[in-house]
Computed example of a mutant assay.
Amino acid sequence: MKTIAVIIHRGPVGRTVDLATRLDVSAHLDQVTVVANDLSARPTGLPAGVSWLVPPRDLGRGGAFRYAVAAMPEVSAYLLVENNVRIGDATIGACLELLAGANIGVVAPALVDEAGARSVPARTTRFLVLPRILGNAPADRPSEANWVSGAAMFVKAECHQRVAMDGRYFHGLEDIDFCYRVRNAGWSVVICPRAAWRSGADPDPDGFRGYYEVRNRLWFTRLRGWRGRTAAAAVWTLCATLPHAITYSHRSDRGEAGSRQTPAGRLVLRGLLDGLGPVPPSGDPRADEPRPSRWAASRSRSGAGRRGG
């Protein structure tokens, strides 16, 4: 089974170079490829055999994975992995062995976070479409799941040819959406008992997380025709998420750092409006992603104008 690892890169190169170097000597991987979503040039110290792809623009996780798949189609499987994950060769081998099984489209290791907690089978909540734990995963055998984290997942190439990851989400929920469509197409999503370690997600440097959490959740429900869940998510956003974000914005604005960011309440409201507006076609992300940057830029210009006046 010819397998290519795809590392999604952004920011400081140290972790990416370290992970690529480790994966480059794996007995189970034929190629390691980095997709530089921050459009940075190939760094020094990267092993010669590792490919460094610079996409035409920031494509998000799903779009970057699609970009790498299009560049390297003649393989049997892919490992999609973020640069804050450490995965050993024994885990890679065990996951690929499971992935070779009939009708298994996606396999993920049991992710262990910095506190020592292991990922377990999960599903989205019925109305608000948020991650929900379904009990403890067996530590000695594989278990099926509704979805697994895109921080580290093995994807059968044949499965991705039929059910491609959707890049329009750009930031968040693309892994959940992908796994749901994989299962609907008749493939299984499986958690391997072998572990990988995640050092923790990087903080959102632009403060855009609130926008994408609201918008993508609404897109996810609308694309499935879940009118009741869409209404529940919209009401929850108005009655709970938005007031909380406005309160947070007022507190942040008291500090100099917070005043330079787009208020969280505004981002949540924009996410609600875009989530209920036209949904773009499946495939690559919108041309204006990261979309919230336009409001951050306008706020920066208006602030500079007030200071200059």
Score class of each variant (00 low, 15 high):
residue 43 P to Y: 12
residue 72 M to D: 09
residue 125 T to N: 01
residue 57 R to A: 15
residue 131 P to N: 09
residue 80 L to C: 14
residue 100 A to H: 07
residue 55 P to H: 07
residue 54 V to H: 11
residue 140 D to H: 13
residue 122 A to N: 08
residue 109 P to L: 10
residue 92 I to A: 07
residue 81 V to Y: 04
residue 117 A to G: 02
residue 86 R to F: 08
residue 56 P to T: 02
residue 118 R to P: 00
residue 101 G to I: 00
residue 133 I to W: 04
residue 81 V to E: 02
residue 71 A to W: 05
residue 81 V to R: 02
residue 51 S to F: 00
residue 63 G to V: 03
residue 130 L to Q: 12
residue 124 T to V: 13
residue 99 L to S: 09
residue 106 V to G: 06
residue 119 S to C: 09
residue 92 I to R: 04
residue 88 G to D: 15
residue 65 F to M: 13
residue 90 A to G: 07
residue 131 P to H: 06
residue 43 P to G: 11
residue 53 L to P: 01
residue 87 I to M: 15
residue 140 D to G: 11
residue 91 T to Q: 12
residue 118 R to K: 13
residue 110 A to T: 14
residue 44 T to I: 10
residue 124 T to Q: 13
residue 83 N to H: 15
residue 67 Y to L: 08
residue 113 D to T: 06
residue 74 E to I: 00
residue 87 I to T: 09
residue 65 F to H: 12
residue 61 R to I: 03
residue 125 T to R: 06
residue 43 P to C: 11
residue 73 P to V: 04
residue 127 F to H: 07
residue 65 F to Q: 10
residue 106 V to A: 05
residue 129 V to E: 00
residue 111 L to E: 03
residue 126 R to K: 13
residue 109 P to Q: 12
residue 85 V to A: 05
residue 77 A to D: 12
residue 54 V to W: 11
residue 141 R to W: 04
residue 129 V to G: 03
residue 97 E to C: 09
residue 135 G to W: 06
residue 64 A to G: 15
residue 137 A to Y: 01
residue 95 C to S: 08
residue 88 G to I: 04
residue 108 A to Q: 05
residue 54 V to K: 14
residue 97 E to H: 14
residue 87 I to W: 06
residue 95 C to R: 01
residue 67 Y to E: 03
residue 123 R to H: 11
residue 63 G to C: 03
residue 74 E to T: 05
residue 90 A to I: 01
residue 60 G to F: 01
residue 130 L to E: 14
residue 84 N to L: 10
residue 79 L to W: 04
residue 123 R to Q: 12
residue 84 N to T: 15
residue 71 A to P: 03
residue 135 G to K: 03
residue 139 A to S: 13
residue 111 L to W: 07
residue 66 R to Q: 14
residue 47 P to E: 10
residue 134 L to P: 00
residue 131 P to Y: 07
residue 76 S to P: 00
residue 128 L to P: 00
residue 82 E to L: 10
residue 134 L to S: 00
residue 131 P to K: 05
residue 89 D to R: 09
residue 79 L to F: 09
residue 71 A to S: 15
residue 135 G to A: 01
residue 81 V to M: 07
residue 86 R to D: 13
residue 111 L to V: 12
residue 115 A to W: 08
residue 105 G to C: 07
residue 71 A to Y: 00
residue 115 A to D: 12
residue 118 R to L: 10
residue 132 R to K: 11
residue 122 A to L: 02
